[in-house]
């Protein structure tokens, strides 16, 4: 059973489209990446899932229960970190965590572990939040979202303001949640972090979904770069390759874009005076750029 199912979701702000016809589902125990640049509709989607906004059309199902109205009881199983985490700044860190935790049933069983992993010391938590750095506030946000070990964690740009070490600590936390069978819906525009921790990703553009697949499948579909280094003593003319488009040539080095199967190309290359062939593994950035530069992959 999908933990989260979104069907034909639409939300507009006057004439501005927030999301349009969005359909996706997140399975149990999955770390799901939600990618898109600022303004693509990620935060609108998340706010719709959290019932902070009401959809114009479409439906959302959480844990098999159609989301109608507020569905406060369903939120017992959800942890939420907004894209712009703005807590009660007059409170101390520990007071804020206690206050939020009291709205939930049960003890915040992961708090000590999360504080330890994110290196939030007791002395830091005793200070008013307004005196905390942006990074420490973000850590506080992560702790309040995850301390009750939610079945679904909805995290909007969770590593914003975290230093690289803390980002790694956060990825470990996400992996820990996966090991425990929890589901994470991770919105980000940092492609490397999505690639590190997510199994599947959805890419959203102008409020519409343009891709929804496993990272491996996306990479496979993505146009790849092929670099051919010619033996200049024989020929310096870039060969014509089937299914490949020449992008640039710098001396003996030619760069192609390959949209389909590479086997025919490799076969063709065996007949050319080639010194080296470089076929880099596409990363998520290539996939992302392909969707955003070309319109579709």
């Amino acid at each position: 059973m999908p933990i989260l199912e979104v069907l034909e979701l639409a939300k507009s702000y006057g004439s501005v489209v927030g999301v349009e016809g969005l359909t996706l589902s997140v399975e149990e125990g999955e770390i799901f990446g939600f990618l898109g640049p600022n303004g693509a509709g990620k935060t609108t989607t998340i706010r719709l899932v959290m019932s902070l906004l009401h959809p114009d059309r479409g439906s959302i199902t959480l844990f098999g229960v159609p989301l109608r109205g507020e569905a406060a009881s369903v939120r017992q199983r959800i942890g939420y970190l907004p894209g712009e985490f703005r807590p009660y700044v007059e409170m101390t860190g520990v007071h804020f965590l206690d206050y939020m935790a009291r709205f939930r049933a049960g003890a915040p069983k992961l708090r000590a572990d999360l504080l330890d992993r994110l290196e939030l010391a007791a002395a830091t938590l005793e200070r008013p939040i307004k005196h905390l750095s942006h990074g420490n506030r973000q850590k506080l946000g992560i702790v309040q979202a995850l301390e009750h070990e939610p079945d679904l964690a909805v995290l909007d740009e969770p590593t914003l303001g975290l230093d690289p070490l803390m980002q790694e600590a956060f990825y470990d936390i996400v992996r820990l949640l996966r090991e425990r069978g929890k589901c994470v819906f991770l919105s980000s525009h940092v492609l490397s972090e999505v690639e590190k921790v997510c199994e599947r990703v959805a890419i959203i553009r102008d409020g519409s979904l343009v891709a929804l697949e496993s990272i491996e499948a996306l990479k496979h579909k993505c146009p790849r770069r092929l670099i051919v280094v010619l033996d200049a003593t024989v020929s310096s003319k870039a060969p014509l390759l089937p299914g490949a488009r020449l992008l640039a040539q710098h001396g003996e080095r030619s760069e192609y874009r390959v949209d389909g199967d590479v086997r025919a190309i490799l076969q063709e290359l065996t007949t050319c005076p080639v010194r080296d062939v470089i076929l880099p593994e596409p990363d998520l950035e290539d996939v992302f750029m392909a969707y955003y530069q070309d319109g579709d992959a």
Partner: peptide
């Protein structure tokens, strides 16, 4: 305006 109500409304309590 301050953003804190968003956190509160995401809690399992009816508005």
């Amino acid at each position: 305006e301050a953003g804190s109500l968003e956190l509160l409304f995401a809690m399992p309590i009816k508005r």
